[in-house]
Every structure is written in structure tokens, then in C-alpha cells.
Write a protein that binds this DNA or RNA. Structure first.
Length: 424
RNA sequence: GGAAGGAUGCCAGAGUGGUUGAAUGGGACGGUCUCGAAAACCGUUGUCCGACAUGUCGGACCGAGGGUUCGAAUCCCUCUCCUUCCGCCA
């Protein structure tokens, strides 16, 4: 969430930024917060003055009691009672202002960075980079949902039997390919200086709030009611929350972590004709890179993370494009997001396989993730993350793009991981 | 699942209801000493909110939330978490 400081000091910038997201009531919301903030501060002022008086009087009563002046003490005691009533009322009112402040802050998305274009939907995203030729397939080329049946490597029906739709079973070389990709991605990140982490894949409520899945997005996560735990929609949640309520030393920065986890998404109401096969699943595998950096470094680091992801796609010989998301298509928490999309030849579609984002202080503010500057000042850090990479759509495009009459060719870089060169 | 104990500052660890934001020790930082270091000695060691002011003043914070009281780290209630033992088990 945005800090009050930003809202107070950069009000117009915030409103302009929010308009890029097509947030309807930007002025209204910001105005409500500032008004509430003003009232909150006034209330606290009078409350603090009263409390200061109470503290002095209490001390005085103590001294009177000690000095054996019980009468005077009793008199003062009755005088204090009136103040206590006032304090109680003011405290309630202060609580209300604080609660309302939080409610309002939760409603406001992050302010898009200056380079983010305004726009309503994916139509308005900007293609900033494209790499690789889209492959020409034979006329009898198959989409991946046919290929996985033909070679018996991913089985949706078995998944339906034991779990439900959107929970495929990977078999034989299909399972092996999954494992190969995960290892490849983890090793590449390790070589790039990321520390490998293996976090839990269920998280508590506080973690959901920390990275911004809660409130409001409960419906997208699986919830274990009995224990109050959420199945993670991405490794971003546990890995970023490792740094909740943490004060880092400047020398530790930037933090670079990578983790592989399964990811769970309910995807309520988002099923349609274009989500066949591996395009959208309830459970999928993903390797995620997460960084925590000083504010002045995060722009550079975002680029670095993008290049890492692009490098992976190039090594896998997949044609891809890099999009700068417009305000209307960005996630709630993000200040800048680049999406990487690979071309899936048989579907003739671009598939999003990675989303690399800089959150600025938006998550850090909720997480209370800070560091102490050399001048000894507490400062919120910046958080960033990106998929590197999400498996299912990578698999879809690998299968489709590399199909030949003899079988599906495995990219050279993966062969040491799979142990085979072709799926046939 | 059963039983018991606990939660205090960066860590360890005190704390009779009334200058306790909190003893003491350790660590870290600064200084003295030294060619340098160690040791020793001296000093510093919070966060959040607010008000005027780039410093001061006020308020809050001893797991969380309530309560009792003129006054709560200290008493009472609820919740959360942790540890240990037993049971079950990968």
C-alpha cells in the first residue's frame, strides 16, 4: 500500500498515476484519505495532551499518597475521572480514524512509474522487444493438447479422476521434462547469483496481507479453513514474506532469492475456449526470482531480471516478445511490469510465461521491510519479482514449436537435464 | 490428541502496581590507550505517531486484544505463538 507520506507530499502525482490505471475515483479516494488523515492527527493531538495531563496527575497522586495527604489525593482522583472519560471517547475516535485509514489505503493500487503508458487493456501494452522467428509448422501440426495425448506424456483425464479439472498428471518423459526445466531454471538463477530457497507452499493470513493478495483476492487462493492457511498462488508470497518485519543492513542488499514451488490458483470464473490444455491450470510449477533492493537500485535491477528471463527463453530457443504493461493491465501492487510471452506455433498465439515487476515500496510498506541508511534513517526498501519461469506454457510452446514427423525435439540446453533428445 | 511451562530491547536475562523505555551481562558502534591489535576503561545502542521546530517537546509500544486502577511489564479475561514430555506418525 502507498505510504501516507507519498499521498501527502505527492498528491497530484499519485492521482495522475492512478488515472493511468483508469481508476475511476482516484481524486475522491485520495481526498478521503487526506481528510481522514487530517482528522486523525487533530484527534491524536488533543488525545496526547490529555494523556500527558493524566500522566502528570497520576504521578502527583502517587506523591500525595506517599506524603500521607490522602485527602488531597482523593480530591485529585475525582478530578481526573472526567479526563478519563474524555480520553476514552477520543481513543475510540482515533481507532476509527486509523481503521478507516487502513481500509482506504487497501483500496488504492500502486502508482504506475512514469514510463508506464496509460491504457485500458492488453491492447494498450507496448511491445518493447521481440526475439526469434516464429516457426513454420507442417500443415498437420498439432496443438499441445493433442501432442500430449499422442505421446502420452501429460494426462488430464487421470488428473480429473484423482483431483479435478486443471490438475494434470505428468507421465514418463513428460514428468521428466518438468523436472528438467525446474532444475535448469534453478541452476541458471543460481549461476546469476540468486540464493535458492525452498519455502512452505501454504502461508498464513499475515503473509497474504504482506504481499498484497489480501484483502480482496481471497477468492483466487485455495484456503485450508481448518488451519487458516492459504495455498500459495506464487512463490512470491512466501519468499517475499521472509522479509516481513525485517530491518536489513545496507551490506546485505540487494537480496537475491530464487525458489521453485508448485502454485495454486482457483481461477474462479476465468475459464473459456482459449484456456485449453496447459494454457491455464489450477496447479502448476514455477521458478520465481525475488529481489529486495535499495530504492535507487530497483530500476536497474528490474532490467537485470528481465535480461535473466530473456536469456532463459533464448537458451530454450523460443521466440518471445517483451511487453511493457499499460496502467490498465498491471497488477494492483506493481509500479512497473514487463510480461514475457512466447509464441506457441500451433495455437498461433502468444502465451505469457513470465511477469517481471517492480513494486517500489508498495509491498515493503505493508511488510515493514526497511533498512537503516548511513545517516541512520529508516527507509523502506523496494521489492521485485519475476517468473523465471512458469512451466506449463513453456512446455506448451516447446511441444508445439518443436514437433517433427519423428517426434518432439528437446532444445540442446535441456538435453543434459532430460537425458533424452526426443519425445516419440 | 493428552499434560506442563513460557512469550520483556540485537541476543541472554532481571523486574515489590507509582521517574521502568525498562536493571545486569553479552554483542555492535564511537572514544581513550597502542606502531597496530587484543585487553582494560569511558560513552552510545530503539521503533512508531503527533506538535512546533531540522532540535526539542508530547504520546504509544515489555506476544495480540480487552478489563481492573488516579497509575499496569507487573493483577484479571480472551486469543495467538513457542518450548518440553507423552501418544500417533513421515
Amino acid at each position: 500500500m502507498l505510504t501516507l507520506q507519498i499521498l501527502r507530499e505527492q498528491t497530484l502525482t499519485v492521482i495522475d498515476g492512478l488515472k493511468k490505471r483508469n481508476l475511476k475515483d482516484a481524486e475522491l479516494l485520495v481526498g478521503q484519505i487526506l481528510e481522514n488523515d487530517k482528522l486523525r492527527r487533530e484527534t491524536q493531538g488533543t488525545l496526547d495532551t490529555l494523556k500527558a495531563k493524566l500522566n502528570v496527575d497520576s504521578k502527583k497522586i502517587g506523591e500525595l499518597m506517599k506524603g500521607g495527604k490522602a485527602d488531597e489525593a482523593t480530591a485529585l482522583r475525582t478530578a481526573v475521572a472526567a479526563d478519563k472519560d474524555k480520553i476514552k471517547i477520543l481513543e475510540e475516535s482515533l481507532n476509527d480514524f486509523e481503521k478507516r485509514q487502513l481500509d482506504l489505503l487497501y483500496k488504492i493500487p500502486n502508482v504506475p512509474a512514469p514510463i508506464v503508458p496509460s491504457g485500458k487493456s492488453a491492447e494498450d501494452n507496448i511491445n518493447v522487444h521481440q526475439h526469434g522467428d516464429t516457426p513454420q509448422l507442417l500443415p498437420d501440426a498439432l496443438p499441445h493438447w493433442e501432442l500430449i495425448k499422442k505421446y502420452d506424456i501429460i494426462d488430464f483425464d487421470l488428473g480429473i479422476k484423482i483431483s479435478g479439472a486443471g490438475f494434470p498428471v505428468y507421465k514418463g518423459k513428460g514428468a521428466r521434462l518438468q523436472r528438467a526445466l525446474i532444475n535448469f531454471f534453478l541452476n541458471e538463477a543460481g549461476n546469476a547469483g540468486y540464493k535458492e530457497m525452498q519455502p512452505p507452499i501454504v502461508v498464513n493470513e499475515a503473509s497474504g496481507y504482506g504481499t498484497g493478495q489480501l484483502p480482496d483476492k481471497e477468492g483466487q487462493m485455495y484456503f485450508v479453513n481448518e488451519d487458516g492457511l492459504y495455498l500459495i498462488p506464487t512463490a512470491e508470497v512466501p519468499i517475499t514474506n521472509l522479509y516481513r518485519d525485517v530491518i536489513l543492513n545496507e551490506e546485505e542488499l540487494p537480496i537475491k532469492n530464487v525458489g521453485y514451488t508448485p502454485c495454486f490458483r482457483r481461477e474462479a470464473g476465468s475459464w473459456g475456449a482459449h484456456v485449453r490444455g496447459l494454457n491455464r491450470l489450477h496447479q502448476f510449477d514455477k521458478v520465481e526470482i525475488v529481489q529486495v533492493s535499495k530504492p535507487e537500485d530497483s530500476d536497474r535491477i528490474l532490467e537485470e531480471m528481465c535480461l535473466h528471463v530473456q536469456g532463459l527463453l533464448e537458451k530454450l530457443e523460443l521466440p518471445y516478445r517483451k511487453l511493457l504493461l499499460c496502467g490498465g493491465d498491471m497488477g494492483f501492487n506493481s509500479a512497473i511490469t514487463y510480461d514475457m510471452e512466447v509464441f506457441s506455433a500451433a495455437q498461433q498465439r502468444w502465451l505469457e510465461v513470465s511477469s517481471v515487476s517492480n513494486f517500489g515500496t508498495f509491498q515493503a510498506n505493508r511488510l515493514k521491510l526497511r533498512y537503516k541508511t548511513q545517516e541512520g534513517k529508516m527507509q523502506l526498501l523496494h521489492t521485485l519479482n519475476g517468473s523465471a519461469l512458469a512451466l506449463p506454457r513453456i512446455v506448451a510452446s516447446l511441444l508445439e514449436n518443436n514437433q517433427t514427423p519423428e517426434g518432439i525435439r528437446i532444445p540442446k540446453v535441456l538435453v543434459p537435464y532430460t537425458g533424452f533428445e526426443i519425445i516419440n
